[in-house]
Each structure stands twice: as structure tokens, then as C-alpha cells.
Design a protein around this nucleic acid. Structure first.
Lengths: 330, 330
DNA sequence: TTGTATGCGTTATCAG
DNA sequence: CTGATAACGCATACAA
């Protein structure tokens, strides 16, 4: 029933040539007479033959696949980056192998290890594992780049957004509006981005802002739950580590009948597509995610092709987007 | 620099045995003396050896990978299904190869074809291609299942949600609230789900509802743009084909100062996580996406292992979730 | 220009 | 229980 897929030998037999010739034709190696090439192509078409990329990979020692690790596919934040990577790899004839850890940090090493077995290189998006593990990983797998986290001490080519500056900018904006006490709804303590953002909020003490941190997460539900914890500290503003949580905060505040921004200001981070359409529209920061993805691929590609010039490892600017969820302190 | 990965031969040499023995140990084939097995395992550990899954796949004729096609990774609707599939495959020792078409229907065949070269089977989520192409696809690739679209005429094992009934229920609810004219914000005309939903809205003529259709899409932005087109028809209710578009509709109506549900009622479909947190919370329908994914994998697995019993091809019930975006007709 | 033979890393068959 | 050795499907030196 399940007919066997035609192999290169089948085509060779059909065309009356050797498999070497077929291989050459498929690889577009021009050192084969036009007539023969045409005959081979016809035979291949007739049989519906397509080279087996796995076998080709084994022979060539390359798979033409790129592994991408992402903590959480359900987080819209990663989508633009992912698209940018996909765009770049497709253009260069590579395919993507995407795997998520579903936010469990312990699985990251295992996932990247297996990705690496199937792919010519791996891009990690916002890995949470500690630097030591990252270090061990890159020792095993030299073709590895980090996006969404600077892992320079681990010696991994990295590209990320400078969310510290952006978060500081947002805090400064709040300070100017008279806010003195803000609650930070934290994401994962293992996330580099999250810790950079928290660092900025703390540093906002410079502007006279007192900061407390409550545990949040990366979902609307976790943001809702964190809201009650935040309110215990009676802040005039709540800064969430990401938009997903911030939208949860907005949802919960509305439920409690607390006016935003009249009574409490709320900020997010990432500027996911929903941020502009929440009620009220969310003040947040937009990082150049597409650029992050594009650069990550550029860096990885230059590693793969053995380009000796070390690519720059940029920390990209994020831009504050002020919408209606922030206002003067109550 | 980039040291070669240790192969089975390296381990064999290190342990002083044949590669056959190493292979047996790695495959946990017990027909090898405990002492030798231990020696081999030690050698493997020392070298950091891990079997090359690609080579193993070539020898075995299987890759232990499952391809998943999805139209749009950025659409939250697919995430639960994806997670369910990932859960099932991981449990059975398979890995996932995920690819999206970015909503361009023409690319679907090519994507599935290449997925199929790398994987032991493919799950298509909500493919948009016409039945004839689907038919051609399954002729080439017997290990194929459809989720989110019934493709029975094409002879493809399918599992999907009965969104026609659910949409009809929603329309009935609106009719009882006095609505007589509704605008349907359409998704892709090539989407089976979308057409099922539109069919239901049309059928709502039974309840005295007059329906018009305007073009929408699968994003907040497209929903916003569609709103103005819908308003030209002066409907008392707008039924969007999916939550993403519905949230766009809400956003645009708020901008226009049109009260929901006082002046216009709005419904969505899918019950994505944001639906409960929009303003106002969205009336929508919830399909058992997790179940869809789980069943899709069950079906595919039984095909792969050659289970002769034809699995059922269920049309699953979706449930209407009434929230505050619907109310009596103005 | 074309064909032959070998290797890529494993598994499996068949002897010993 | 263990070891040669032939596949698996393809690419490529090397010969012709």
C-alpha cells in the first residue's frame, strides 16, 4: 500500500545512467551533458523523485536546518523575532526546527542538545539557564547564538534589547508624573530581561521612586493574581515586567473598580499587538524584535560559513510608547 | 578547533569492542554481558558520545520526528492544540518539527512536502488549500492527518470542532436578544472553519436574522479595519469569525465612541486567553483545542504503527461562552 | 563527461 | 554473547 519512495537508484535505472550522474543533475552540477541531464530530469519527474535531505545531510555532514529554542510559543513577544529568523533562514535555504521549553528552565539544556543533533546551528531565544550551563552548552556546541539575552561572559555571540535603559526611561516618566511608590510585577527571576528591568526600577531610586517587587509571570492570569499582592503595598503605579502580565493587571484593576490611570498607573513591556488595544491602551516599551531575529541569524550564519570576522554583538535600543494607562499620581 | 563529534566507532575503539556491541548497549538491547555493557557506557560517557539520530534514522527508515503545519504561529488559537500535540509526541518519544505558512495558502503544499521528508508523519492544522490539493497530498503522503478541518472527502483522517453548531447557537442567542441584522467579519475564505461559521450565520435566517459579510482576517488590525465596513450595513450585532478580529472590532468601536453592548453587540470565536480580559469581556465560543491536538496525535500514531483499526474521526462540540459584549438589540 | 567505489553513522543480519 | 558486514540514500574523489 504505502509505496516506497523512489530513491536515487530508481531514477538512475529509469534514466539508464549511474547514480553519480543523477546526483550531479540534482545538485545542478553543470559538468553533465544537457541531453543526459534532461533525460535524468524527466525520469525524476516521472517517478516523482525528490532527494532525501536526511541522507544528503549524512553524506554532506550538514542538515541545512537551524534549531530555534524558545521558552514559550504562546508568548506573542517571540513571534516577530521568530518570523524574522524564519525569513532569513528561508532566504538562505535553511529550514527551522522550533522547540519550546514551556517555561521549564531545567529542560533547556536537553532541548538545545537534541536540537543541535539535528541542526547545523542553534539560536536560543531568551534562555533562562544560568551562565555556567550556558557556558557548558557552548563548549559542546560552538554554533550557538543567543537572542534576547546577553551571554558574553559565557562567550556566546549575543544580540538583545537594552531594556534597562528603556525601563529607566519609563520610570523617569512616572517620576515626573509625581509617582513615588511603584510595584514591579516580576517575570521569571531566571530571565535576563526580567532582571535587567527590575534593576532599572530599583535604580529609579535616583528619581525618588521607592520600588517593591511582587511575583508575576508571563500570562494574563499570573498578572491578575499578582495585582492583589501589589496593591498591598499601596503603590501609585504598577510596572509589569511584560505586557501579558500588565494586561492581567489592567483586567484585575477594572474588576476591582480601580481607575486607570486616575488612581493607579500601569506600564508593561514588549508592546505586543494587544497592548495598543487594551483598556486603557497600555504604556509600554517596544523593542526591535524583528531586528533581534535578523541579527541573530546573521551572526549564526557567519559562524556556520566560517566567516572569520567577528560580528558585532549589539545591544539594541528600545523605545518607550506612552499610551493612556499612565497619568499623574493620585 | 571545532572538534569532531565522537561517533560509535570512537566509542568502540575506546572500549575495545566492536561497533555492533556499542550499538546494542545504546539501544538497551540486553543481549550483552553486564560487564561489557558497563565498560561501553563508561567509554561513551568519557567521550561524551550520543548517537546521531540522523544516521539512526537513515538506517531505521524512520526519523522519530513529527511535522506540524500551522498557518500562523502568531495566532493564539493554535497554541493549545500545539501544546497537546507536543505533549503526546514527547511522551511517545517523538520530536516536533513546526512550520508555518504565514497565512499564504500557496506555500502549504511545499511546506508539507518538505516536512514529510524529515518526519515520520505530518499533522496539518487548519490547512486552507482546496480539497483537490489535499487529496494529491495524501496520495503522496499516507501518514497525514488533519486537525481543525474535516477533510473526509479527500480521504484524510480528520478531527475538528463543530463550529457550525456553536456559531448557530450564538446567532440564536442574539436573535433572542432581538437582533435582526448582523454583520459577519470573515476570516479567510479558504478556511474551513471560517466557512462553517459563515454558513451558520447565514442559516440563522431561520431565526429571522439577516446576515451580511465583510472581509476581516486573523489579526486585531484587520478586525479594526473591517469594523468600518461592517458599520456601513448598520447592524445591531457584529459576529467576528475569530477572537482576534473581534478584539479589533471592540477596539475600533471604543474609538468611535460606540457603546458595546448598548449600541452594538459583538461576538468572537475561539476563546483565546485575551477574550476574557477585553473590554468588555468577549462573548465567544470555546472549542476543545487540547482535545483536538491530542486526538490528532492519537490518530497519526495509530497510522504510523500500522494499527489496522480505523480510529474515529470526531467532530467535537464547542461551547458558547456568554460574556458582556452581547446584550439586547438597540 | 560519465561511471565505480568509498564514506557518512547507525542498525540489523548472520556467523562464530 | 560478540563481531564482521551489508544495508540506508546520497555525495564525491578517483578512474576511465
Amino acid at each position: 500500500m504505502t509505496q516506497r519512495r523512489p530513491t536515487i537508484s530508481d531514477v538512475a535505472r529509469e534514466a539508464g545512467v549511474s547514480i553519480a550522474t543523477v546526483s550531479r543533475v540534482m545538485r545542478r552540477n553543470d559538468s553533465v551533458s544537457p541531453a543526459l541531464a534532461e533525460r535524468v530530469r524527466e525520469a525524476a519527474d516521472r517517478l516523482g523523485y525528490r532527494p532525501n535531505p536526511v541522507a544528503r545531510g549524512l553524506a554532506l555532514g550538514e542538515s541545512r536546518m537551524i534549531g530555534v529554542f524558545v521558552p514559550q510559543l504562546a508568548n506573542p513577544y517571540f513571534h516577530l523575532t521568530l518570523k524574522a529568523i524564519a525569513g532569513g533562514t528561508n532566504e538562505d535555504g535553511y529550514r527551522l526546527l522550533v522547540q519550546e521549553s514551556d517555561d521549564v528552565t531545567e529542560d533547556e539544556t536537553e532541548i538545545v542538545d537534541t536540537l543541535y543533533r539535528h541542526a547545523d546551528g542553534v539560536i536560543m531565544l531568551a534562555p533562562r539557564m544560568p551562565d555556567e550551563l550556558l557556558q557548558a552548552l557552548v563548549d559542546r556546541h560552538p554554533r550557538l547564538v543567543c537572542a534576547g539575552r546577553m551571554a558574553l561572559t559565557a562567550g556566546i555571540p549575543s544580540v538583545a534589547t537594552d531594556c534597562h535603559s528603556a525601563m529607566l526611561d519609563m520610570a523617569r516618566t512616572l517620576a515626573r508624573l509625581g509617582h513615588r511608590k511603584v510595584a514591579f510585577v516580576s517575570g521569571s527571576h531566571e530571565s535576563w530581561y526580567n532582571m535587567e528591568r527590575w534593576r532599572a526600577v530599583q535604580q529609579a531610586a535616583e528619581f525618588g521612586i521607592e520600588a517593591v517587587r511582587v511575583q508575576g509571570g508571563y500570562s494574563v492570569e499570573e498578572g491578575r493574581a499578582a495585582t492583589d499582592r501589589a496593591l498591598e503595598h499601596e503603590p501609585t503605579a504598577i510596572m509589569a515586567s511584560n505586557d501579558l502580565a500588565a494586561i492581567g493587571v489592567l483586567s484585575r484593576l477594572r474588576e476591582l473598580g480601580i481607575g486607570v490611570p486616575e488612581e493607579i498607573s500601569v506600564t508593561g513591556f514588549d508592546d505586543i499587538p494587544f497592548a495598543a488595544h487594551s483598556d486603557p491602551p497600555l504604556t509600554t516599551a517596544r523593542s526591535p524584535e524583528g531586528l533581534v531575529g535578523a541579527l541573530a541569524w546573521t551572526m549564526l550564519r557567519s559562524i556556520i560559513v566560517g566567516d572569520p570576522t567577528t560580528p558585532p554583538q549589539p545591544l539594541l535600543r528600545a523605545e518607550v510608547v506612552v499610551r493612556e494607562s499612565t497619568g499623574p499620581a493620585a
